[in-house]
């Protein structure tokens, strides 16, 4: 309706936008925006690849094929492969409970889910050292059982799960709250049981938000530095993830190797964004229908 009203009558003088700045202001504002994006986002990204390939493809492949680099890549993939599915389950369960039910302590639970976002990652890592480290709360008992958590893979996984906890839940809660519970009520009145309702009605209604949360959570899981740095112990070839490996290489003045590994992480970010954009484009109709 509003569009129709804005169209000037035939023969009317040159259309003048009601809400518009002068040419000069527009040029200046756009230039500032482009300059900021270029300097703070595009340039760093380009320079990562530039530094990585500065001495050509050979050294690049050599740096990636190196034993410790491969170990770091494997560890990062392993951690993500555990942390992301774990948070998928936790996130869906938490969002489902918060959005579909009323209970005491609900707002406290929402705050708790946000905690990893507000706490510094280094603190998150320290929490686990204090709990499971040699001098920690459970440390002596764990040691007596021969279980190593800190400075080992379990600690890295725990820290990563903690840091990426909000991603899925945060994506799902607003959408599920907006959708309400009538679809579920319809399903049970038609005879569906709890699990049938969940898998055939609740989950399909949020699948795109879920995928989006998983993608972002995955990017963070692979890229997490602070929390993992505290609990990993940075043992080369054993507890070094890709971000930690980048730092070590960089500190040892191995710029090409450092940027080669960093370029993998940057690539991961680009793939995540590309995948997200592709999915949004490919299923735009369905997403619109589900949000409706």
């Amino acid at each position: 309706m509003a569009d129709v009203a804005l169209v000037p009558p035939v023969g009317a003088p040159r259309r003048r936008e009601v809400i518009s700045e002068g040419l000069f202001v527009r040029v200046v504002l756009i230039a500032i925006a482009v300059a900021l994006l270029g300097i703070f986002l595009l340039l760093p990204l380009v320079s990562v690849f530039y530094e990585a390939f500065r001495t050509g493809f050979g050294p690049y492949w050599a740096a990636l094929g190196e034993k410790d680099a491969l170990a770091a890549i494997r560890l990062t993939l392993l951690v993500a492969a555990i942390a992301v599915p774990a948070n998928l389950v936790f996130g869906v369960a938490a969002a489902w409970a918060i959005a579909k039910f009323d209970f005491k302590g609900k707002s406290f639970l929402i705050t708790l889910i946000d905690l990893p976002f507000s706490v510094s990652p280094v603190t998150s890592g320290l929490i686990y050292v204090l709990l499971f480290g040699a001098q920690g709360f459970f440390g002596p008992w764990l040691q007596s059982q021969g279980i190593q958590i800190i400075f080992a893979v379990p600690g890295i996984v725990l820290a990563t799960i903690f840091v990426t906890f909000p991603f899925v839940a945060r994506e799902l809660i607003p959408l599920m709250q907006e959708q309400g519970t009538t679809d579920e009520e319809a399903a049970i009145s038609l005879g569906a049981g709890g699990w049938q309702t969940f898998f055939r009605v609740t989950l399909p209604n949020v699948k795109w938000a879920l995928l989006y949360g998983v993608l972002l959570g995955n990017a963070r899981a692979m890229g997490e530095f602070g929390a993992v740095a505290v609990v990993s112990g940075k043992i080369r070839g054993q507890t070094n993830t890709m971000p930690l490996h980048v730092e070590i290489l960089y500190n040892e003045y191995m710029a090409v190797a450092a940027f080669a590994v960093a370029s993998l992480l940057a690539m991961l970010a680009l793939i995540t964004l590309g995948l997200k954009t592709f999915l949004e484009w490919r299923f735009s109709g369905e997403i619109a229908a589900i949000r409706r």
Binding site: D183, A186, I188, S189, G191, R200, A289, I290, R292
Partner: peptide, 20 residues
């Protein structure tokens, strides 16, 4: 239970399953 009652319920907002 709701399921055992075998009641046909038509909701005000219809509550049709959007993805089906």
């Amino acid at each position: 239970s709701v399921q055992e009652r075998n009641v046909g319920f038509v909701f005000q907002s219809y509550a049709l399953f959007r993805h089906m």
